[in-house]
Amino acid sequence: MSLESLQDIWLTYQSTVAFIGLNGLLALSVYTTLSCGQLSLAQAGFMAIGAYASTILTFHTGLPFAVNLAVATLLPALVAIPLGLPVLRLKGVFLAIATIGFGEVVRLFFVNLDFTNGALGLTAVPQRTSMWMIYAALGAALFVLWRIRGSRTGHALEAIREDEPAARTMGIDAARYKLAMLALGASFAGLAGALEAHYTYMVSPSTYSFSRVVDMLVYAVVGGTGVFYGPVVGATFLTALPEVLREVSSRIGLAPGPVRLFVNGLVLLLVILFLPEGISSLPRRVRGALQARRRARAS
């Protein structure tokens, strides 16, 4: 393969590579709250806050991009705390509904904000996100979650996920841990939102609708939430899949759009039915099956 064709391939697929990183970060933001058993669907709202904050700073101040990104990371976490104090008292589906409500409130706030051009949003956002920033952010998020696992904090989160009242009688301040995880997930989402806005040149409320949260949740479920990197595996798989499908569907003469939705739905269904712990559990399962077969042959 010549150097030119390699370059062509990179130009064709670099936006896919960028979106794998961004979607991975978003999937981690859902995972963060799931890791202590809380299903928060407010992530698109936090993402919008981060995206708008950094875009407004870019348009109206001369601050360096690093500062904008820092604001986009911290502001959603600050919003998450007053949101979480009442909302995290709710459990299961009630928490999910309340957080969907928050996401919609944020979206409608930006739809009605004339300052940011309402429903049309802001276009011609300067492109300031480079590939390394996306992957540095993803790497940082993975690092934090990796270090939490197996720590005193990590054990407390697992205990809350397994049995919250029992965890509390062990002296674990469940409310504080849940709030901290909501804030951490919010900051991941805010950072991803800011990076995406400065990568796609635009920010508009419709980007942060409910269906965006569903995407994030599907990444996490397909990848598996048993391990911290599972959601990134799911995001990688489901972001790369449409590219493959586009090739395939053009060869067999079908429109790529419906095929993509169909295959996404199929993948989700197959994973839930046959791989409830997600794609990331596949190597472990294969190893287990091989061992079982070897043992059966030995006996």
Partner: peptide, 23 residues
């Protein structure tokens, strides 16, 4: 008990208050 955790990790959770392990 926390069913998905090992016996040792269950006891480790019990030691939550006794541990000085800032993240």
């Amino acid at each position: 008990l926390f069913p998905a955790l090992t016996a040792a990790d269950n006891v480790l959770v019990g030691a939550h208050l006794r541990r000085d392990a800032p993240l």
